[in-house]
Every structure is written in C-alpha cells, then in structure tokens.
Design a protein around this nucleic acid. Structure first.
Length: 431
RNA sequence: GCCCUGGUAGUAUAGUCCGGCCUAGUAUGUUCGGCUGUCACCCGAAAGAUCCCGGGUUCGAAUCCCGGCCAGGGCGCCA
C-alpha cells in the first residue's frame, strides 16, 4: 500500500482535476451493480463522486457494502451520462476497512431513524448529511464568536469546571468526590468571569456547565456549553450592544460560509435581525399580556404558554426582555438606584427561545451583602466572592449564550439533543 | 414529579379501537441470482420479529386490564 497520508486528494478537488492520475479515499455511500458495469458512490469530508467500473477485474473479491472504506486510484473524466457531469475511472481499488452490514441506523434517510436510535449510534449518525450540517454550523458559531471577540480586544480564559460549593443557590449541582473533600461540577463560570474581568477588563470563555435538574424537555440538557463574556466599565446596555453585534456577526458568517449546510437543513432563508434589537421591559411585557386578558401580575414569572404569547405579541425574531424584578434574577444583579425592586438584567429571545441572559453585576461589597440577605442567603457563605470586589472592582456586566440553544434556532431543530454531539440528559449517559 | 401518546425484523412502519382467517403485512436495508450507463438503477428469490419487560383476564392476547421500564410531546422544576 502506498503512502495514503501523502497522496490522497479530497473529492471536491479531484472533481476539478480532470485527467490527472489521483488517489481519492472515503466511504461507500451505495453501489449500483449492473453486471458488466458497476458504480460506487463515494463520500469524503469534502463531497461525493461516482466511480464507474467497466473493468470488473478491479473489483475487490468481496462485494462492497455501505460505509466500507476504500481508496481508489484513477482519474476524473467529464461525462455527459453521469448526472454530476464528472465521474472517476479507477485503475486500482483498495478496501481499507469493511463495515458490518446492515447498518444499525439509516444514514441515507430512506427511512427516518428516530433520534434515540441515531443518538445510540452517534458515530455513524455523523455520516448523515443533515447531522453533519448541524455540527459544521455549530463549529462556525464557535469560531465566529471567538473571532469577533478576539478581534475586539477580549481575552479568552478557562474557568475551572470543578468548584468547591454551590455559591449561587438555585439549580442543583452534581457533586463529586475530590480526595478528602466534596466538590461540584460548575453550574456557571460566573465568579471566574467576574474575577478576570475586574482585572483584564474584557474577557470571554467557551465552557461546559452542568445542572443536576431532573428536567425532561426539548430545550434542556444536563450538560451544556456556554459562550460567555464579561466586561469592566460596562453596564447592562453596553453588553446588550455587544450581544447584538456578536449575534449578527455569527449569523452573517453562517449565511456567507454555510449555505450548503443551511440548504440541507432547509434553513437557507436564515434571517439576520436588524440592530438595535427591540428592548421590551418586563413591565411592558406584563402589560402586553394583561391587555389580552392573561392572568398575570407584576412580579410573576411567565408561564410557558405566556412566553409563547409574548413572542407573538412582540413579533420580532430577536429581542431583549429587560429590567426584571430582582426576585427573579440572581443576587448579583445590579438594582436600579431609584427602584431597587428592578434589576439591570436581560434575556435575549431569539427564534422563540431564551438563548442568552445577562446582567450588570454588583461591584460594591456592601450592596452585595444587602442583596444576599434580600434573597434569603447568608453573606457569610459568600465572603470569598465578596472579597473579590473589595480591591478596586470597576462596574462590570456580562452575559452568556447557550451554544446548543442558538444552534437549535439556526439549524431549525426542535429538540436540543440534535444540537449536542453527545447529549447528556436525565436518562442518557452514553455514548 | 404530573398529563397525553407511543414501544412490532437492522431501520421505519401497518395491524391494536371492535381478541380468533396474524402461520404478524409493507417499505427500505441485508444475503444470493440475473442484467453494459446507472444515478433512491431495475427484475427475481431468501433470510430476518422473545410483537419492550412482568403479571392478570380468556378456550384463545401484538390486540383487553394492572404494574414497571423506555421514548416523543405538553407542563413543572431550571443562578
């Protein structure tokens, strides 16, 4: 066998290099056997090509099956018979590895395998063009997020994922043994974002977080990835403007570079919202709902059906819901000076789901203690956290975007498990 | 944690209401045979199903009843 690594050409390139002797390699999508002429449809990361075999001596002794891995040396020729306009005429066909048959999941979508079956065989499901498209787009979300922030002076940092205590209350954490101590999986990089931002000024991170809630919904996972920023000398409005720009940058990049994937997912009409996004205050939202007769009063959280109504009433693909009651947001959310019941917190709603939330944080130790008490928490338990703001912490604000959720909206998926390569939910711990 | 719906060959489904011609149908995949230009090739044949698990009713259960597990959806929970 020759040096596979050095002489292989990707299929998209091979299709352009008509008449040259080349070696391509990939997976057999299907074969069409017409006795004295045989066709193999071959796929690699770059595309597909039809291999046309007239010299039957070239065929491997064993029949070729779906997902067999083969290496083919030959040349691309133009063809007015082949639908693609080109086909590959082999001189030599090597089987690098056989695949078991039949496949346990349908990756050609002749029958639509269920999500559960696909997730059980995820490594094979990645060969499905639709699944591939989701993760190619997700990769673009990540790279364009990173690119925008890096180009705008933000420093990427890595928070720890093992933490010592449930500092924020609220969501349940997963506990893990840590030598002779007890530790937890981080539910948020919150404290670390703040500790870095008050020195580096502009920071961001892409990090997994875990929540031990027993939820069972199409929009929740127990392990997710967050794309976070934190910024000093900033208030809630400052970072909302950053969020708008980041989101539009991501969407623009995807629209420009992932048109093939969007088409496969039938999302080619991906709409890019106009900046500035509409800002709807919590109070306005309550009024809007009351106006159509909903049973809701100031201070209530929205029920799911009310959330949906609100989306319709606002009628924007993307908007902010801001100025929430303090009771509904974290203790570190900055209250308005003239109205301490309301905090400088916002959610970004995109495509009907909350993809991001953020706040201006409290940077004054005494105010933090006061808000902790207001929330029924003991400031004594938070002294390490509070101490971080005792040595010249500037005002700061930040937000986080849920990676799987934004992927859902852009790819048009309705179940978040589609948008995590290896999702972790109430039941699923493998693969 | 609650409510609704579902669980049948590798995959996806029909059958279930109203129990018995179900020896469980179909598509696709798989295997074998045939075919010189297919492109979801075509034609023919074969193999492939503890009908999710446990219990019950009945002469008889894929089908009805109870419990469990799992899945999808709707809620709840979700700094």
């Amino acid at each position: 066998m020759s040096h596979l690594m050095f002489d292989r050409v990707y299929i998209d390139e091979a299709k352009k290099r008509i008449g040259e002797k080349l070696t391509i390699a990939g997976w057999v999508i299907r074969t069409r056997d017409l006795a004295k002429i045989k066709f193999i449809l071959l796929r690699d990361k770059s595309g597909e090509i039809q291999i046309t075999i007239k010299d039957l001596n070239l065929m491997p002794s064993e029949n070729l099956g779906r997902e067999d891995v083969v290496k083919v040396t030959g040349e691309t020729v133009q063809s007015n018979i082949a639908n693609a306009g080109v086909e590959f005429i082999p001189e030599k066909i090597d089987v690098l590895n056989k695949s078991k048959q039949p496949l346990p999941v349908d990756i050609t979508q002749q029958t639509q395998s269920e999500l559960e079956t696909r997730l059980n065989w995820r490594f094979l499901d990645f060969r499905n063009p639709q699944t591939r498209s989701i993760f190619i787009i997700q990769n673009k979300i990540l790279s364009s997020f990173r690119e925008y922030l890096t180009n705008n002076g933000y420093i990427e940092f890595q928070p720890p994922c093992i933490i010592s205590s449930a500092s924020e209350g609220g969501a349940e954490l997963f506990s893990i043994p840590y030598f002779e101590k007890k530790a937890f999986l981080a539910q948020s990089p919150q404290l670390y974002k703040q500790m870095t931002a008050i020195s580096f000024e502009k920071v961001f991170t892409i990090t997994p977080i875990w929540r031990a809630e027993k939820f069972n919904t199409p929009t929740h996972l127990n392990e997710i990835r967050q794309m976070d920023i934190e910024q000093a000398f900033a208030d809630d409005e400052t970072v909302m403007q950053v969020l708008e720009k980041v989101l539009v940058h991501i969407l623009t990049e995807i629209k420009e570079t992932c048109s093939e994937e969007l088409k496969i997912l039938k999302q080619e009409n991906l709409e890019i919202p106009k900046i500035p996004f509409r800002r709807v205050t919590y109070t306005e939202a309550i009024q809007m709902l009351q106006n159509i007769g909903e049973q809701i009063v100031w201070g209530d959280d929205f029920t799911k059906p009310q959330e949906k109504l609100l989306m319709e009433l606002v009628g924007e693909k993307a908007f902010f819901l801001k100025d929430w009651p303090g009771a509904q947001k974290a203790f570190y959310a900055m209250p308005y000076e003239n109205n301490p019941d309301v905090v400088k917190a916002f959610d970004c709603i995109y495509g009907g789901i909350e993809i991001s939330s953020g706040t201006q944080r409290i940077h004054i130790p005494e105010l933090l203690r006061e808000r902790l008490k207001f929330k029924g928490l003991d400031p004594e338990d938070f002294e390490n956290y509070i101490e971080a703001f005792a040595y010249g912490a500037p005002p700061h604000a930040g937000w986080s975007i849920g990676l799987e959720r934004i992927t859902m909206i852009i790819t048009g998926m309705t179940n978040i498990r589609e948008c995590a390569m290896f999702p972790r939910d109430r039941e699923r711990l493998t693969p």
